[in-house]
Design a protein around this nucleic acid. Structure first.
Length: 572
RNA sequence: GCGCCCGUAGCUCAGCGGAUAGAGCAGGGGACUUCUAAUCCCAAGGCCGCAGGUUCGAAUCCUGCCGGGCGCACCA
Protein backbone atom coordinates (compact mmCIF):
# COMPACT_ATOMS: atom_id res chain seq x y z
CA UNK A 1 0.00 0.00 0.00
CA UNK A 2 1.45 3.35 -0.98
CA UNK A 3 0.72 6.57 0.81
CA UNK A 4 -1.14 8.35 -1.97
CA UNK A 5 -3.62 5.51 -2.07
CA UNK A 6 -3.84 5.19 1.71
CA UNK A 7 -4.55 8.90 2.14
CA UNK A 8 -6.94 8.89 -0.79
CA UNK A 9 -8.89 6.03 0.76
CA UNK A 10 -9.12 7.89 4.05
CA UNK A 11 -10.19 11.20 2.53
CA UNK A 12 -12.57 9.99 -0.15
CA UNK A 13 -15.48 9.06 2.19
CA UNK A 14 -15.24 12.42 3.95
CA UNK A 15 -15.23 14.29 0.62
CA UNK A 16 -18.17 12.20 -0.57
CA UNK A 17 -20.19 13.11 2.50
CA UNK A 18 -19.37 16.80 2.23
CA UNK A 19 -19.95 17.00 -1.52
CA UNK A 20 -22.88 14.62 -1.65
CA UNK A 21 -21.18 12.41 -4.24
CA UNK A 22 -17.89 10.75 -5.08
CA UNK A 23 -14.87 13.05 -5.28
CA UNK A 24 -11.23 12.26 -6.05
CA UNK A 25 -9.32 13.87 -3.15
CA UNK A 26 -6.41 14.68 -5.52
CA UNK A 27 -3.65 13.66 -3.13
CA UNK A 28 -0.08 14.42 -4.19
CA UNK A 29 3.37 15.05 -2.74
CA UNK A 30 3.82 18.52 -1.35
CA UNK A 31 6.80 20.82 -1.08
CA UNK A 32 5.50 22.26 2.18
CA UNK A 33 4.83 19.05 3.99
CA UNK A 34 4.51 15.39 3.02
CA UNK A 35 1.25 15.35 1.07
CA UNK A 36 -1.56 17.66 0.14
CA UNK A 37 -5.12 17.30 -1.08
CA UNK A 38 -6.34 19.87 -3.62
CA UNK A 39 -9.92 18.76 -4.06
CA UNK A 40 -11.64 21.34 -1.84
CA UNK A 41 -10.65 24.16 -4.20
CA UNK A 42 -12.40 22.62 -7.17
CA UNK A 43 -15.50 21.92 -5.09
CA UNK A 44 -16.05 25.50 -3.94
CA UNK A 45 -18.06 26.68 -6.92
CA UNK A 46 -20.20 23.59 -7.13
CA UNK A 47 -21.08 23.64 -3.43
CA UNK A 48 -21.30 27.40 -3.17
CA UNK A 49 -19.12 27.43 -0.08
CA UNK A 50 -15.64 28.83 0.52
CA UNK A 51 -12.94 26.22 -0.14
CA UNK A 52 -11.40 26.63 3.31
CA UNK A 53 -14.72 25.79 4.92
CA UNK A 54 -15.08 22.71 2.75
CA UNK A 55 -11.55 21.62 3.60
CA UNK A 56 -12.17 22.07 7.32
CA UNK A 57 -15.41 20.11 7.03
CA UNK A 58 -13.62 17.24 5.29
CA UNK A 59 -10.92 17.29 7.94
CA UNK A 60 -13.54 16.93 10.70
CA UNK A 61 -15.00 13.84 9.07
CA UNK A 62 -11.85 12.13 7.78
CA UNK A 63 -10.33 9.26 9.69
CA UNK A 64 -6.67 10.24 9.63
CA UNK A 65 -5.65 9.82 13.26
CA UNK A 66 -3.46 6.76 12.75
CA UNK A 67 -1.85 7.98 9.51
CA UNK A 68 -1.16 11.67 9.99
CA UNK A 69 0.57 13.50 12.80
CA UNK A 70 -0.65 16.81 11.40
CA UNK A 71 -3.60 17.49 9.10
CA UNK A 72 -4.55 21.10 8.54
CA UNK A 73 -6.20 23.51 6.18
CA UNK A 74 -3.69 25.74 4.44
CA UNK A 75 -3.74 28.69 2.07
CA UNK A 76 -6.87 29.06 -0.05
CA UNK A 77 -8.14 25.59 0.85
CA UNK A 78 -5.44 22.98 0.55
CA UNK A 79 -5.29 20.16 3.03
CA UNK A 80 -1.74 19.69 4.24
CA UNK A 81 -1.02 16.21 5.52
CA UNK A 82 2.02 15.27 7.55
CA UNK A 83 2.49 11.53 7.82
CA UNK A 84 3.05 10.11 11.29
CA UNK A 85 6.51 8.61 11.73
CA UNK A 86 5.19 5.31 13.05
CA UNK A 87 2.74 4.99 10.16
CA UNK A 88 5.56 5.56 7.67
CA UNK A 89 7.79 3.16 9.57
CA UNK A 90 5.03 0.57 9.44
CA UNK A 91 4.87 0.82 5.66
CA UNK A 92 8.63 0.38 5.40
CA UNK A 93 8.41 -2.69 7.63
CA UNK A 94 5.73 -4.13 5.37
CA UNK A 95 8.03 -3.51 2.40
CA UNK A 96 10.89 -5.26 4.19
CA UNK A 97 8.70 -8.32 4.67
CA UNK A 98 7.47 -8.27 1.07
CA UNK A 99 9.50 -10.14 -1.54
CA UNK A 100 7.80 -8.00 -4.20
CA UNK A 101 8.64 -4.69 -2.54
CA UNK A 102 5.10 -3.37 -2.64
CA UNK A 103 4.49 -4.25 -6.28
CA UNK A 104 1.47 -6.56 -6.51
CA UNK A 105 1.12 -9.26 -9.13
CA UNK A 106 -1.61 -8.22 -11.59
CA UNK A 107 -5.04 -9.61 -10.84
CA UNK A 108 -5.82 -10.32 -14.49
CA UNK A 109 -2.70 -11.30 -16.42
CA UNK A 110 -2.72 -10.48 -20.11
CA UNK A 111 -0.84 -11.99 -22.98
CA UNK A 112 1.37 -9.20 -24.22
CA UNK A 113 3.47 -9.30 -27.38
CA UNK A 114 6.45 -6.98 -27.24
CA UNK A 115 7.78 -6.44 -30.73
CA UNK A 116 11.25 -4.98 -30.49
CA UNK A 117 14.83 -4.76 -31.78
CA UNK A 118 14.09 -6.01 -35.33
CA UNK A 119 17.54 -5.92 -36.97
CA UNK A 120 18.10 -6.82 -40.61
CA UNK A 121 19.72 -10.01 -41.79
CA UNK A 122 23.09 -9.52 -43.46
CA UNK A 123 23.47 -6.11 -41.88
CA UNK A 124 25.30 -5.29 -38.71
CA UNK A 125 23.27 -3.86 -35.84
CA UNK A 126 23.72 -0.09 -35.54
CA UNK A 127 22.65 2.68 -33.18
CA UNK A 128 19.31 2.82 -34.95
CA UNK A 129 18.45 -0.46 -33.23
CA UNK A 130 19.52 0.66 -29.78
CA UNK A 131 16.41 2.40 -28.52
CA UNK A 132 13.97 -0.23 -29.71
CA UNK A 133 16.09 -2.95 -28.14
CA UNK A 134 16.67 -1.19 -24.82
CA UNK A 135 13.17 0.20 -24.28
CA UNK A 136 11.52 -2.95 -25.56
CA UNK A 137 13.52 -5.13 -23.24
CA UNK A 138 12.59 -2.94 -20.28
CA UNK A 139 8.93 -3.24 -21.26
CA UNK A 140 9.20 -7.01 -21.50
CA UNK A 141 10.98 -7.28 -18.15
CA UNK A 142 8.55 -5.02 -16.35
CA UNK A 143 5.34 -6.55 -17.70
CA UNK A 144 6.65 -10.02 -17.03
CA UNK A 145 7.53 -9.15 -13.45
CA UNK A 146 4.02 -7.85 -12.95
CA UNK A 147 2.72 -11.28 -13.87
CA UNK A 148 1.74 -10.87 -17.50
CA UNK A 149 2.47 -13.52 -20.08
CA UNK A 150 5.04 -11.74 -22.20
CA UNK A 151 5.91 -12.94 -25.67
CA UNK A 152 9.03 -11.28 -27.02
CA UNK A 153 8.91 -10.87 -30.78
CA UNK A 154 12.01 -10.00 -32.72
CA UNK A 155 10.61 -9.04 -36.12
CA UNK A 156 13.88 -9.64 -37.96
CA UNK A 157 14.15 -8.31 -41.49
CA UNK A 158 14.85 -11.61 -43.22
CA UNK A 159 12.87 -11.23 -46.44
CA UNK A 160 12.55 -9.03 -49.47
CA UNK A 161 14.28 -8.13 -52.71
CA UNK A 162 17.78 -7.48 -51.26
CA UNK A 163 18.13 -11.20 -50.63
CA UNK A 164 18.49 -11.86 -54.33
CA UNK A 165 21.71 -9.89 -54.48
CA UNK A 166 22.91 -11.15 -51.11
CA UNK A 167 22.52 -14.78 -52.10
CA UNK A 168 24.19 -14.21 -55.46
CA UNK A 169 27.08 -12.54 -53.70
CA UNK A 170 27.26 -15.51 -51.37
CA UNK A 171 27.43 -17.81 -54.38
CA UNK A 172 30.20 -15.66 -55.94
CA UNK A 173 32.26 -15.76 -52.78
CA UNK A 174 31.82 -19.46 -52.39
CA UNK A 175 30.12 -20.93 -49.40
CA UNK A 176 33.29 -21.96 -47.67
CA UNK A 177 34.72 -18.47 -47.96
CA UNK A 178 31.47 -16.85 -46.87
CA UNK A 179 31.10 -19.19 -43.93
CA UNK A 180 34.44 -17.87 -42.75
CA UNK A 181 33.77 -14.22 -43.41
CA UNK A 182 30.25 -13.86 -42.07
CA UNK A 183 30.80 -14.97 -38.49
CA UNK A 184 33.69 -12.55 -38.19
CA UNK A 185 31.08 -9.93 -37.56
CA UNK A 186 31.81 -8.03 -40.72
CA UNK A 187 28.33 -8.27 -42.06
CA UNK A 188 28.36 -4.74 -43.31
CA UNK A 189 31.16 -5.22 -45.80
CA UNK A 190 29.38 -8.30 -47.11
CA UNK A 191 26.23 -6.29 -47.68
CA UNK A 192 28.10 -3.36 -49.20
CA UNK A 193 30.07 -5.59 -51.56
CA UNK A 194 26.83 -7.10 -52.79
CA UNK A 195 25.34 -3.63 -53.21
CA UNK A 196 28.32 -2.38 -55.21
CA UNK A 197 28.08 -5.28 -57.64
CA UNK A 198 24.33 -4.83 -57.90
CA UNK A 199 24.71 -1.19 -58.83
CA UNK A 200 27.58 -1.71 -61.27
CA UNK A 201 26.91 -5.03 -62.97
CA UNK A 202 23.86 -5.60 -65.15
CA UNK A 203 24.43 -9.36 -65.33
CA UNK A 204 24.61 -9.53 -61.54
CA UNK A 205 21.42 -7.54 -61.30
CA UNK A 206 19.66 -9.98 -63.56
CA UNK A 207 20.93 -12.97 -61.57
CA UNK A 208 19.73 -11.28 -58.39
CA UNK A 209 16.27 -10.80 -59.79
CA UNK A 210 16.03 -14.43 -60.79
CA UNK A 211 17.29 -15.41 -57.37
CA UNK A 212 14.51 -13.48 -55.67
CA UNK A 213 11.98 -15.39 -57.72
CA UNK A 214 13.65 -18.69 -56.82
CA UNK A 215 13.66 -17.74 -53.14
CA UNK A 216 10.01 -16.84 -53.14
CA UNK A 217 9.20 -19.93 -55.17
CA UNK A 218 10.72 -22.08 -52.46
CA UNK A 219 13.66 -23.41 -54.49
CA UNK A 220 15.47 -25.75 -52.12
CA UNK A 221 19.03 -24.76 -52.96
CA UNK A 222 18.20 -21.06 -52.70
CA UNK A 223 16.40 -21.58 -49.44
CA UNK A 224 19.45 -23.32 -48.02
CA UNK A 225 21.71 -20.39 -48.90
CA UNK A 226 19.16 -17.95 -47.50
CA UNK A 227 18.97 -19.92 -44.26
CA UNK A 228 22.74 -19.74 -44.01
CA UNK A 229 22.62 -15.95 -44.16
CA UNK A 230 19.84 -15.84 -41.59
CA UNK A 231 21.69 -18.13 -39.20
CA UNK A 232 24.98 -16.31 -39.43
CA UNK A 233 23.18 -13.04 -38.78
CA UNK A 234 21.29 -14.49 -35.85
CA UNK A 235 24.59 -15.45 -34.30
CA UNK A 236 25.73 -11.82 -34.57
CA UNK A 237 22.47 -10.50 -33.09
CA UNK A 238 22.73 -12.86 -30.13
CA UNK A 239 26.28 -11.70 -29.45
CA UNK A 240 25.06 -8.11 -29.30
CA UNK A 241 22.13 -9.02 -27.05
CA UNK A 242 24.44 -10.77 -24.66
CA UNK A 243 26.77 -7.78 -24.57
CA UNK A 244 23.78 -5.49 -23.99
CA UNK A 245 22.20 -7.69 -21.30
CA UNK A 246 19.07 -8.01 -23.35
CA UNK A 247 16.76 -10.94 -22.66
CA UNK A 248 15.99 -11.76 -26.31
CA UNK A 249 16.86 -15.32 -27.29
CA UNK A 250 16.81 -17.26 -30.53
CA UNK A 251 13.34 -18.53 -29.62
CA UNK A 252 12.06 -14.96 -29.87
CA UNK A 253 13.18 -14.55 -33.50
CA UNK A 254 10.09 -14.33 -35.64
CA UNK A 255 11.35 -12.91 -38.92
CA UNK A 256 9.18 -11.38 -41.56
CA UNK A 257 9.46 -14.59 -43.56
CA UNK A 258 7.56 -16.51 -40.90
CA UNK A 259 4.40 -14.69 -41.99
CA UNK A 260 4.75 -15.57 -45.70
CA UNK A 261 1.99 -18.16 -45.67
CA UNK A 262 -0.41 -15.72 -44.01
CA UNK A 263 -0.03 -12.92 -46.56
CA UNK A 264 -2.34 -14.28 -49.24
CA UNK A 265 -5.16 -14.95 -46.74
CA UNK A 266 -4.74 -11.40 -45.42
CA UNK A 267 -5.35 -9.93 -48.86
CA UNK A 268 -8.16 -12.36 -49.65
CA UNK A 269 -9.95 -11.67 -46.40
CA UNK A 270 -9.61 -7.92 -46.75
CA UNK A 271 -11.11 -8.30 -50.18
CA UNK A 272 -13.94 -10.46 -48.85
CA UNK A 273 -14.65 -7.83 -46.21
CA UNK A 274 -14.97 -5.24 -48.95
CA UNK A 275 -12.09 -3.17 -47.64
CA UNK A 276 -9.78 -3.65 -50.59
CA UNK A 277 -9.50 -1.29 -53.55
CA UNK A 278 -7.24 -1.46 -56.52
CA UNK A 279 -5.26 1.70 -57.15
CA UNK A 280 -2.63 2.00 -59.85
CA UNK A 281 -2.38 -1.76 -59.88
CA UNK A 282 -1.78 -2.07 -56.14
CA UNK A 283 -4.19 -3.68 -53.69
CA UNK A 284 -4.93 -1.03 -51.10
CA UNK A 285 -7.04 -0.22 -48.09
CA UNK A 286 -7.86 3.43 -47.51
CA UNK A 287 -8.25 4.00 -43.78
CA UNK A 288 -10.36 7.07 -43.03
CA UNK A 289 -8.69 10.32 -42.05
CA UNK A 290 -5.37 9.75 -43.79
CA UNK A 291 -4.28 12.13 -46.52
CA UNK A 292 -1.10 12.26 -48.55
CA UNK A 293 0.95 15.14 -49.87
CA UNK A 294 -1.60 15.93 -52.53
CA UNK A 295 -4.49 15.89 -50.08
CA UNK A 296 -5.85 12.70 -51.59
CA UNK A 297 -6.67 9.72 -49.33
CA UNK A 298 -3.56 7.78 -48.41
CA UNK A 299 -3.57 4.04 -49.07
CA UNK A 300 -2.12 1.26 -47.03
CA UNK A 301 -0.61 -0.89 -49.76
CA UNK A 302 -1.07 -4.52 -48.87
CA UNK A 303 0.02 -5.89 -52.24
CA UNK A 304 2.26 -3.99 -54.60
CA UNK A 305 1.48 -3.54 -58.28
CA UNK A 306 4.15 -6.13 -59.12
CA UNK A 307 2.30 -8.69 -57.01
CA UNK A 308 4.80 -8.59 -54.15
CA UNK A 309 3.90 -7.94 -50.54
CA UNK A 310 5.07 -4.91 -48.63
CA UNK A 311 5.57 -4.57 -44.91
CA UNK A 312 1.95 -3.52 -44.40
CA UNK A 313 0.84 -7.02 -45.34
CA UNK A 314 3.38 -8.56 -43.00
CA UNK A 315 2.35 -6.30 -40.15
CA UNK A 316 -1.31 -7.15 -40.67
CA UNK A 317 -0.54 -10.85 -40.79
CA UNK A 318 1.46 -10.51 -37.59
CA UNK A 319 -1.42 -8.76 -35.80
CA UNK A 320 -3.80 -11.46 -36.91
CA UNK A 321 -1.45 -14.16 -35.71
CA UNK A 322 -0.80 -12.46 -32.40
CA UNK A 323 -4.41 -11.83 -31.43
CA UNK A 324 -5.89 -14.87 -33.14
CA UNK A 325 -3.38 -17.67 -32.66
CA UNK A 326 -1.37 -16.43 -29.71
CA UNK A 327 -4.34 -14.94 -27.89
CA UNK A 328 -2.59 -11.64 -27.16
CA UNK A 329 -4.65 -8.69 -25.96
CA UNK A 330 -1.88 -6.10 -25.87
CA UNK A 331 0.49 -5.61 -28.79
CA UNK A 332 3.44 -3.31 -28.29
CA UNK A 333 5.53 -2.03 -31.19
CA UNK A 334 8.86 -0.52 -30.25
CA UNK A 335 9.54 1.44 -33.38
CA UNK A 336 10.78 4.99 -33.95
CA UNK A 337 8.35 7.89 -34.10
CA UNK A 338 8.84 8.52 -37.85
CA UNK A 339 6.80 5.38 -38.47
CA UNK A 340 3.86 6.57 -36.47
CA UNK A 341 1.63 7.11 -39.45
CA UNK A 342 2.31 3.66 -40.80
CA UNK A 343 1.21 2.04 -37.56
CA UNK A 344 -1.86 4.24 -37.23
CA UNK A 345 -2.94 3.00 -40.63
CA UNK A 346 -2.09 -0.64 -39.96
CA UNK A 347 -3.98 -0.60 -36.64
CA UNK A 348 -6.94 1.12 -38.24
CA UNK A 349 -7.13 -1.50 -40.98
CA UNK A 350 -6.65 -4.36 -38.51
CA UNK A 351 -9.49 -2.98 -36.41
CA UNK A 352 -11.75 -2.61 -39.45
CA UNK A 353 -11.00 -6.20 -40.40
CA UNK A 354 -11.86 -7.40 -36.91
CA UNK A 355 -8.34 -8.59 -36.15
CA UNK A 356 -8.06 -6.42 -33.05
CA UNK A 357 -11.21 -7.40 -31.19
CA UNK A 358 -11.67 -5.71 -27.81
CA UNK A 359 -10.11 -5.86 -25.35
CA UNK A 360 -7.15 -6.39 -27.67
CA UNK A 361 -5.33 -3.24 -28.68
CA UNK A 362 -2.10 -2.32 -30.38
CA UNK A 363 0.21 0.45 -29.19
CA UNK A 364 2.99 2.07 -31.14
CA UNK A 365 5.58 2.77 -28.46
CA UNK A 366 7.48 5.37 -30.43
CA UNK A 367 10.71 7.14 -29.63
CA UNK A 368 12.96 9.89 -30.94
CA UNK A 369 16.42 9.63 -32.46
CA UNK A 370 19.85 9.48 -30.95
CA UNK A 371 21.83 12.56 -31.88
CA UNK A 372 25.53 13.29 -32.02
CA UNK A 373 27.14 16.23 -30.24
CA UNK A 374 26.39 18.35 -33.33
CA UNK A 375 22.67 17.91 -32.67
CA UNK A 376 22.18 15.88 -35.82
CA UNK A 377 21.43 12.19 -36.21
CA UNK A 378 24.35 10.20 -34.91
CA UNK A 379 26.65 9.17 -37.77
CA UNK A 380 30.09 7.70 -38.06
CA UNK A 381 32.91 9.91 -39.28
CA UNK A 382 32.50 8.42 -42.74
CA UNK A 383 28.85 9.43 -42.64
CA UNK A 384 27.53 5.89 -42.27
CA UNK A 385 25.62 4.38 -39.41
CA UNK A 386 27.44 3.83 -36.14
CA UNK A 387 27.94 0.17 -35.34
CA UNK A 388 26.29 -0.87 -32.12
CA UNK A 389 29.10 -3.17 -31.06
CA UNK A 390 31.61 -0.35 -31.45
CA UNK A 391 29.48 1.99 -29.38
CA UNK A 392 29.05 -0.56 -26.61
CA UNK A 393 32.73 -1.42 -26.60
CA UNK A 394 33.60 2.23 -26.26
CA UNK A 395 31.20 2.55 -23.33
CA UNK A 396 32.78 -0.44 -21.62
CA UNK A 397 36.32 0.77 -22.28
CA UNK A 398 35.55 4.21 -20.86
CA UNK A 399 33.81 2.79 -17.81
CA UNK A 400 36.60 0.30 -17.16
CA UNK A 401 39.15 3.08 -17.28
CA UNK A 402 37.10 5.11 -14.82
CA UNK A 403 36.73 2.14 -12.49
CA UNK A 404 40.49 1.63 -12.45
CA UNK A 405 41.16 5.32 -11.80
CA UNK A 406 38.58 5.69 -9.07
CA UNK A 407 39.06 2.47 -7.15
CA UNK A 408 42.59 1.10 -6.95
CA UNK A 409 41.38 -1.84 -4.88
CA UNK A 410 39.63 -3.40 -7.83
CA UNK A 411 41.55 -6.24 -9.44
CA UNK A 412 41.92 -6.66 -13.18
CA UNK A 413 39.01 -9.06 -13.50
CA UNK A 414 36.69 -7.13 -11.23
CA UNK A 415 37.48 -3.82 -12.93
CA UNK A 416 36.49 -5.42 -16.23
CA UNK A 417 33.21 -6.65 -14.76
CA UNK A 418 32.46 -3.27 -13.24
CA UNK A 419 33.37 -1.57 -16.51
CA UNK A 420 30.94 -3.72 -18.36
CA UNK A 421 28.06 -3.26 -15.91
CA UNK A 422 28.65 0.49 -15.69
CA UNK A 423 29.35 1.10 -19.37
CA UNK A 424 26.35 -0.85 -20.63
CA UNK A 425 24.21 0.48 -17.80
CA UNK A 426 25.15 4.04 -18.70
CA UNK A 427 24.14 3.59 -22.33
CA UNK A 428 20.82 2.00 -21.43
CA UNK A 429 20.04 4.45 -18.66
CA UNK A 430 20.72 7.43 -20.93
CA UNK A 431 18.08 5.99 -23.21
CA UNK A 432 15.51 5.23 -20.51
CA UNK A 433 15.89 8.27 -18.28
CA UNK A 434 14.43 10.90 -20.55
CA UNK A 435 11.04 11.06 -22.22
CA UNK A 436 11.19 8.55 -25.06
CA UNK A 437 9.36 10.88 -27.45
CA UNK A 438 12.30 13.22 -27.48
CA UNK A 439 15.53 12.95 -29.37
CA UNK A 440 18.54 12.78 -27.11
CA UNK A 441 22.19 13.61 -27.48
CA UNK A 442 24.72 10.88 -26.86
CA UNK A 443 27.26 12.44 -24.51
CA UNK A 444 29.83 10.16 -22.88
CA UNK A 445 30.79 12.66 -20.21
CA UNK A 446 27.26 13.03 -18.96
CA UNK A 447 26.28 9.38 -19.30
CA UNK A 448 29.26 8.17 -17.31
CA UNK A 449 29.21 10.90 -14.70
CA UNK A 450 28.91 9.78 -11.12
CA UNK A 451 26.81 12.83 -10.38
CA UNK A 452 23.32 13.44 -11.48
CA UNK A 453 20.68 11.25 -13.03
CA UNK A 454 22.95 8.53 -14.42
CA UNK A 455 23.33 4.77 -14.14
CA UNK A 456 26.71 5.02 -12.39
CA UNK A 457 25.22 7.21 -9.67
CA UNK A 458 22.49 4.69 -8.95
CA UNK A 459 24.91 1.77 -9.14
CA UNK A 460 27.26 3.56 -6.78
CA UNK A 461 24.52 4.01 -4.20
CA UNK A 462 23.83 0.29 -4.42
CA UNK A 463 27.49 -0.65 -4.09
CA UNK A 464 27.85 1.56 -1.01
CA UNK A 465 25.07 -0.39 0.67
CA UNK A 466 26.73 -3.67 -0.24
CA UNK A 467 29.91 -2.29 1.24
CA UNK A 468 28.17 -1.58 4.53
CA UNK A 469 26.96 -5.16 4.78
CA UNK A 470 30.39 -6.51 3.87
CA UNK A 471 31.86 -4.58 6.77
CA UNK A 472 29.00 -5.39 9.10
CA UNK A 473 29.42 -9.07 8.43
CA UNK A 474 25.74 -9.54 9.15
CA UNK A 475 22.52 -9.33 7.21
CA UNK A 476 19.67 -6.99 8.09
CA UNK A 477 17.02 -8.45 10.38
CA UNK A 478 13.65 -8.13 8.60
CA UNK A 479 11.83 -8.00 11.92
CA UNK A 480 13.90 -5.10 13.24
CA UNK A 481 11.81 -2.10 14.28
CA UNK A 482 12.09 0.80 11.85
CA UNK A 483 12.69 4.11 13.62
CA UNK A 484 12.48 7.28 11.58
CA UNK A 485 13.84 10.17 13.56
CA UNK A 486 16.22 12.01 11.22
CA UNK A 487 14.75 13.98 8.30
CA UNK A 488 17.04 12.03 5.97
CA UNK A 489 15.52 8.78 7.23
CA UNK A 490 12.00 10.01 6.61
CA UNK A 491 12.91 11.26 3.13
CA UNK A 492 14.41 7.88 2.28
CA UNK A 493 11.34 6.06 3.62
CA UNK A 494 8.99 8.07 1.40
CA UNK A 495 10.93 7.11 -1.72
CA UNK A 496 10.98 3.44 -0.74
CA UNK A 497 7.26 3.34 -0.14
CA UNK A 498 6.52 5.00 -3.49
CA UNK A 499 8.16 2.31 -5.62
CA UNK A 500 5.08 0.17 -6.21
CA UNK A 501 2.86 2.93 -7.55
CA UNK A 502 5.53 4.04 -10.01
CA UNK A 503 6.05 0.54 -11.39
CA UNK A 504 2.31 0.05 -11.82
CA UNK A 505 1.90 3.35 -13.63
CA UNK A 506 4.86 2.70 -15.95
CA UNK A 507 3.37 -0.65 -16.94
CA UNK A 508 0.55 1.35 -18.44
CA UNK A 509 2.34 4.39 -19.86
CA UNK A 510 5.65 2.72 -20.75
CA UNK A 511 7.29 6.01 -19.82
CA UNK A 512 10.38 4.53 -18.30
CA UNK A 513 11.84 7.89 -17.39
CA UNK A 514 9.32 7.97 -14.55
CA UNK A 515 10.81 4.78 -13.11
CA UNK A 516 14.33 6.07 -13.74
CA UNK A 517 13.46 9.36 -12.05
CA UNK A 518 12.05 7.58 -9.06
CA UNK A 519 15.15 5.42 -8.67
CA UNK A 520 17.30 8.52 -8.97
CA UNK A 521 15.38 10.25 -6.19
CA UNK A 522 15.72 7.11 -4.12
CA UNK A 523 19.48 6.96 -4.70
CA UNK A 524 19.80 10.67 -3.93
CA UNK A 525 17.78 10.24 -0.73
CA UNK A 526 20.00 7.34 0.21
CA UNK A 527 23.20 9.32 -0.46
CA UNK A 528 21.98 12.10 1.80
CA UNK A 529 21.04 9.55 4.45
CA UNK A 530 24.46 7.94 4.10
CA UNK A 531 26.20 11.24 4.83
CA UNK A 532 24.17 12.11 7.89
CA UNK A 533 23.12 8.86 9.45
CA UNK A 534 25.94 6.53 10.44
CA UNK A 535 24.82 2.93 10.24
CA UNK A 536 27.54 0.74 11.70
CA UNK A 537 28.54 3.21 14.37
CA UNK A 538 25.00 3.64 15.63
CA UNK A 539 23.78 1.85 18.76
CA UNK A 540 21.62 -1.26 18.92
CA UNK A 541 18.08 -0.38 17.84
CA UNK A 542 19.10 2.56 15.65
CA UNK A 543 21.71 0.43 13.96
CA UNK A 544 19.21 -2.37 13.35
CA UNK A 545 16.70 0.09 11.95
CA UNK A 546 19.25 1.69 9.63
CA UNK A 547 20.59 -1.66 8.48
CA UNK A 548 17.06 -2.60 7.50
CA UNK A 549 16.55 0.72 5.68
CA UNK A 550 19.78 0.04 3.79
CA UNK A 551 18.65 -3.46 2.92
CA UNK A 552 15.27 -2.38 1.57
CA UNK A 553 16.91 0.44 -0.39
CA UNK A 554 19.35 -2.01 -1.97
CA UNK A 555 16.55 -4.37 -2.89
CA UNK A 556 14.46 -1.63 -4.48
CA UNK A 557 17.44 -0.24 -6.40
CA UNK A 558 18.40 -3.70 -7.57
CA UNK A 559 14.89 -4.63 -8.65
CA UNK A 560 14.23 -1.24 -10.24
CA UNK A 561 17.44 -1.34 -12.22
CA UNK A 562 16.80 -4.95 -13.17
CA UNK A 563 13.50 -3.85 -14.70
CA UNK A 564 15.44 -1.31 -16.75
CA UNK A 565 17.88 -4.04 -17.74
CA UNK A 566 20.78 -2.60 -15.74
CA UNK A 567 23.15 -4.58 -13.52
CA UNK A 568 24.08 -3.72 -9.97
CA UNK A 569 27.70 -4.63 -9.17
CA UNK A 570 28.51 -5.23 -5.49
CA UNK A 571 31.64 -3.13 -5.70
CA UNK A 572 32.61 -0.14 -7.79
C1' G B 1 0.30 22.33 -48.24
C1' C B 2 -1.26 18.58 -44.46
C1' G B 3 0.09 15.57 -40.17
C1' C B 4 3.17 14.10 -35.94
C1' C B 5 7.05 15.17 -32.16
C1' C B 6 9.66 19.06 -29.62
C1' G B 7 10.63 24.57 -27.80
C1' U B 8 11.21 25.37 -19.50
C1' A B 9 17.97 28.16 -15.89
C1' G B 10 24.37 29.15 -19.95
C1' C B 11 24.02 23.34 -21.08
C1' U B 12 21.19 18.45 -20.47
C1' C B 13 16.46 17.46 -18.74
C1' A B 14 11.97 16.78 -14.98
C1' G B 15 7.21 18.88 -14.00
C1' C B 16 1.74 18.60 -18.04
C1' G B 17 -4.77 22.16 -13.98
C1' G B 18 -3.29 24.06 -8.03
C1' A B 19 0.23 27.68 -3.17
C1' U B 20 7.14 30.94 -4.03
C1' A B 21 8.38 26.41 -11.56
C1' G B 22 12.35 21.61 -9.85
C1' A B 23 17.03 18.35 -10.62
C1' G B 24 21.86 17.49 -12.58
C1' C B 25 26.06 19.59 -15.25
C1' A B 26 29.09 23.97 -15.89
C1' G B 27 30.56 28.39 -12.86
C1' G B 28 30.90 30.34 -7.01
C1' G B 29 31.46 28.82 -1.65
C1' G B 30 31.97 24.87 1.97
C1' A B 31 32.53 19.43 4.17
C1' C B 32 37.28 13.64 4.11
C1' U B 33 41.90 11.42 11.53
C1' U B 34 34.48 8.84 10.07
C1' C B 35 30.22 2.72 6.62
C1' U B 36 33.97 4.01 -0.85
C1' A B 37 34.58 12.42 -1.15
C1' A B 38 32.94 7.96 -7.85
C1' U B 39 29.74 11.44 -2.31
C1' C B 40 27.29 15.40 0.48
C1' C B 41 25.81 20.58 1.94
C1' C B 42 25.09 26.04 0.85
C1' A B 43 24.43 30.23 -2.34
C1' A B 44 23.42 31.96 -7.25
C1' G B 45 20.96 31.26 -11.73
C1' G B 46 13.89 31.48 -15.24
C1' C B 47 9.29 37.27 -20.13
C1' C B 48 8.22 28.19 -18.87
C1' G B 49 9.05 30.28 -27.74
C1' C B 50 5.15 34.54 -28.78
C1' A B 51 -0.03 36.28 -28.68
C1' G B 52 -4.95 35.53 -27.46
C1' G B 53 -8.75 32.47 -24.88
C1' U B 54 -11.04 28.99 -21.01
C1' U B 55 -10.66 28.80 -15.45
C1' C B 56 -11.29 30.94 -8.67
C1' G B 57 -6.25 29.29 -10.48
C1' A B 58 -2.39 27.91 -16.77
C1' A B 59 4.51 25.96 -17.89
C1' U B 60 0.30 22.46 -17.86
C1' C B 61 -6.12 22.77 -21.42
C1' C B 62 -7.98 25.38 -26.34
C1' U B 63 -6.92 28.58 -30.81
C1' G B 64 -3.51 31.21 -33.88
C1' C B 65 1.42 32.38 -34.93
C1' C B 66 7.10 31.76 -34.71
C1' G B 67 11.34 28.41 -34.46
C1' G B 68 13.66 23.18 -34.75
C1' G B 69 13.11 17.96 -36.19
C1' C B 70 10.50 14.07 -38.76
C1' G B 71 6.83 12.03 -42.02
C1' C B 72 3.36 12.29 -46.22
C1' A B 73 1.52 5.40 -52.40
C1' C B 74 4.30 0.32 -54.02
C1' C B 75 11.85 0.41 -49.05
C1' A B 76 11.26 -1.53 -44.06
Amino acid sequence: MDLEKLLTDRLAPAFATVAGGPVDPLVRRSARTDFQSDAALALARRLGRPPRVIAADVLDRADLADVCSVAEVSGPGFLNLTVADDALAGLVSALAADARLGVPVVAEPETVVVDYSAPNVAKEMHVGHLRSTVIGDAAARLLQWLGHRVLRANHVGDWGTPFGMLIEHLVDLGEAEAAQELPMGDLDSFYKAARVKFDADEAFRERSRRRVVALQGGDAATRRLWRMLVQQSARHFLTVYELLDVTLTERDFHGESSYNDLLTPVVEDLDRLGLLRSSNGAACVFPPGQAGRDGEPLPLIVRKSDGGYGYAATDLAAIRHRTGTLGATRLLYLVGLPQRRHFEMVYAVAAQAGWLPAPARAEHVGFGSILGSDGRMLRSRAGGSVKLVGLLEEAIARATLLARERNAELGQVEAAEVGRAVGIGAVKYADLSSDRHRDYVLDWERMLSLDGNTAPYLQYAYSRIRSIFRRAGVAARPEAVIRLTEPAERALAFELVGFGAVVVSVADSLEFHHLAGHLYRLAAAFSAFYERCPVLRADGPVRDSRLLLCDVTARVLRQGLYLLGIRTPDRM
